[in-house]
Design a protein around this nucleic acid. Structure first.
Length: 738
DNA sequence: CAGAGACTCGAGGAG
DNA sequence: CGAGTCTCTG
């Protein structure tokens, strides 16, 4: 049979075992995506299962898209009818049909973390609780944990009786939930929770989906939380054809409610479950795999599993100590340049991984200096930028006028003379009459009591009304353009005419093109569809491996990806493993960090670099951390201690404060000599102090100072937005602006 | 009511 | 160190 050709015996077994509960324990790089896609193809082609009877849940939209494409290649027609999606998008789809049965309407808004925080702040204010005693992020975490465990606000209230603090938290939870409901909004956790609720209170809805999904597959099962577990269990309880794929050693989302017991207890929860282990790794060298195994074996309570490979031995792991984070970044940059020049690699072969997003900054600086193209994942997400959130705020209000939170965000953006006082008054009215903010400002009698502000409020309400009509026409792009135009939002930014406003305009253009893209490619384009897509997109969904650039991301984001060369930076006690996990002395927390390390190591195909710095600047303070325990868990024969990257006797010491540019000793001739050779070294620069120069990333700035620095010139440039920067003129490709 | 400037306070990972 | 908040002034 063509479909199982080229699969190993275990993989074959996993493809053929289509009936009943199946647990596939798939080690890193063991070809599980291959197994899953072939399994789906097998169901359709050999078992004649209709594609729309199959549900496949993946962790990201990107993985879903890939899976669909690969099944498409295998079976040709029909693959588009399979439900392949993430938990969240599958649930939103289900809720759009039937959420009116549980007290919302189908035009509900999805709130992101920022919206949640604003809402919690409103709750604290209303309840007169102090943010010091009930920090927003803590409260949010607590509520999220409850929802992940399917504990409703009233359940929580019952459980909290007698516990003063818990009673207060229960009050916040209750009010928060009430506000979500009146705004016709769901937070991320609600998307799962409400779907489970819908299924439980409306068995006929559940039955419909149970009948429909004869075959269910769930990827990354180790990262499911209790709510997701319940959802899967409900859906599968009729046909019992549930296949879950996961690796307990890669469970890294405990902090957001993932329950590792879901995978460890699968055999108990689903009777007669078949367990198949995929242990042959096709991705990494022996050295890399041995290192991964050596680290992870320090964890207890794992499912027994021994990953092996027929791949070659490979290079030793390069363990590198530097004095500080700048030297670390410099080492990474130089090493990339060296590998590209000497080994003919490409930028896209490299990934640099770190524990926290804050670590990316220094790496970026040095990549820019070396003119290394890079893609940064994480940090401030595109859809969380102010200008984007403002525009989305308009779209949300147009779509869901009950969304008071979004309405309050945009009612005075751009400035139209509706200040906090007026907003407060309207709010008081709205709550007295138990109506939404928008309904209140549309009510002539109410508005007429606002004197000077009345006409402004009316004008705003009319504006939204017009947009609502236009939204019916269908094109999201046109709607966005109309908003920009008629609110004067774009004009305001254009008038500012600063680097910052220009960047905002760029982002807005990006949003317009995303909307245009959506209009063209969506099956049934609609405003709600666009907002949904925007809310559920993850950073990683936009990662495109065809793009020839080094990729920078957190270890968490790297899950599921692979690269020929991988750098893991910041391997220091207190950074990785994180401070939180170390001080808590909670062995579970450290074990999760270790699993994260295992995930990081197993991303590498050919060569792995582990870096740590003796000192590191954090929150403006220099910290001195010991080398990470994970490095000491590596067998000595697998690692080569790289030449320590020493600093030069620096002729400019004392003049420079940051961005140490030169090392007299680098183990090779890096980019410096390249620039040196390609341009005759005594050519004077094309600009001098006071000139305007352009930089790829920082834009246009003024040259303040030029210093001769060996092969190149160190130039101090002040950029309007980024401030003063010291750059190597040729490396940073500074160009004179005429 | 808007804007600028001082200010504090906080800090992990993500859909 | 920097974002977000608060306060003060025009």
């Amino acid at each position: 049979m063509r479909l199982v050709e080229g699969l190993n015996p275990k993989q074959k077994e996993a493809v053929l075992q289509t009936e009943g509960p199946v647990l596939i324990l798939a080690g890193a790089g063991s070809g599980k995506t291959r197994v899953l896609t072939h399994r789906i193809a097998y169901l359709i082609q050999e078992k004649n299962i209709l594609p729309w009877k199959i549900l496949a849940i993946t962790f990201t939209n990107k993985a879903a898209k890939e899976m669909r494409e690969r099944v498409d290649q295998l079976v040709g027609k029909g693959a588009e009818e399979i439900w392949v999606s993430t938990f969240h998008s599958a649930c939103v789809k289900i809720l759009r049909r039937d959420i009116d049965k549980i007290g919302y309407n189908r035009y509900f808004t999805i709130y992101d973390t920022g919206d949640q925080k604003s809402l919690i702040k409103e709750c604290l204010k209303e309840l007169n609780y102090n943010e010091k005693n009930y920090p927003v992020s803590y409260v949010l975490g607590e509520i999220s944990n409850q929802k992940n465990e399917l504990v409703s606000a009233s359940d929580y209230e019952k459980n909290s009786a007698g516990d003063f603090r818990k009673e207060k938290l229960a009050n916040i939870y209750k009010l928060y939930q009430k506000k979500l409901e009146s705004n016709n909004a769901l937070d991320f956790d609600d998307i799962i929770f409400k779907t489970v609720e819908l299924f439980i209170y409306h068995p006929e809805v559940l039955e419909y989906y149970q009948n429909r999904f004869e075959y269910i597959m769930v990827d990354e099962y180790q990262d499911t939380n209790t709510a997701q577990y319940k959802l899967v269990k409900l859906l599968a309880s009729k046909h019992h054809n549930l296949c879950v794929v996961g690796d307990d050693d890669q469970s890294i989302y405990g902090w957001r409610g993932a329950n590792i017991r879901n995978i460890l207890d699968f055999e108990k929860d689903f009777k007669n479950a078949k367990v198949i282990k995929l242990e042959q790794n096709y991705r990494s060298t022996k050295v890399i795999l041995d290192a991964a195994n050596a680290v992870i074996k320090n964890n207890f309570g794992r499912k027994s599993k021994a990953l092996w490979t027929e791949n070659e031995q490979g290079d030793l792991i390069d363990v590198r100590e530097t004095d500080n984070e700048h030297d670390e970044a410099e080492f990474v940059a130089n090493e990339i340049v060296k590998q590209i020049e000497e080994e003919g690699r490409e930028y896209k072969d490299f990934a640099v991984l770190y524990r926290t997003n804050a670590q990316s900054r220094v790496l970026e600086e040095h990549f820019i200096k070396h003119a290394i193209p890079y893609r940064l994942l994480g940090g401030v997400r595109f859809y969380e930028r102010k200008e984007i959130k403002d525009l989305l705020g308009y779209l949300r209000v147009i779509q869901n006028p009950s969304d008071d939170l979004s309405l309050k965000r945009i009612i005075n953006v751009p400035k139209r003379g509706i200040g906090d006082t007026t907003i407060g008054k309207v709010e008081a009215f709205a709550s007295d009459y138990d109506m939404s903010f928008f309904d209140a400002i549309r009510d002539v009698e109410i508005v007429s009591q606002f004197g000077r502000s009345a006409s402004k409020l009316k004008k705003f309400a009319d504006l939204i009304g017009v947009f609502q009509v236009e939204a019916q026409a269908g094109s999201v792009m046109e709607l966005v353009e109309n908003i920009l135009e008629r609110t004067g939002y774009l004009k305001e930014l254009e008038n500012e005419n600063t680097e910052e406003s220009k960047e905002r305009i760029q982002n807005i253009k990006e949003l317009i093109s995303k909307a245009a893209d959506y209009d063209q490619n969506a099956e049934e384009p609609s405003l709600e569809g666009f907002l949904e897509e925007v809310s559920l997109v993850a950073d990683i969904d936009n990662y495109n491996e065809a793009n020839n650039a080094v990729v920078l991301m957190t270890l968490h984001s790297a899950k599921g990806l692979e690269f020929p060369y991988v750098f893991i930076t910041g391997l220091e006690e207190g950074i990785f493993p994180s401070y939180m996990s170390v001080v808590s002395e909670n062995e579970d927390a450290v074990e999760e960090e270790r699993r994260l390390c295992y995930v990081g190591i197993t991303r590498a195909r050919q060569k792995l670099y582990l870096c740590y710095a003796k000192s590191r600047m954090l929150r403006g303070l220099t910290q001195y951390n010991r080398c990470s325990r994970f490095i000491s868990e590596l067998p000595k024969d697998l690692i080569s201690i790289g030449n320590k990257v020493k600093k030069a006797v620096d002729p400019l010491a004392g003049i420079r404060s940051r961005n140490k540019v030169l090392h007299t000793y680098t183990p090779y001739q890096g980019a410096v000599s390249k620039a040196d050779n390609s341009s005759s070294e005594n050519t004077p620069l094309e600009f001098e102090c006071g000139d305007l120069v352009k930089h790829i990333k920082f834009g246009v700035g003024t040259v303040e100072d030029i210093r001769y620095a060996g092969a190149d010139y160190e130039v101090t440039v002040t950029f309007p937005k980024f401030g003063s920067k010291k750059l190597m003129a040729r490396l940073a490709k500074l160009k004179l602006v005429q």
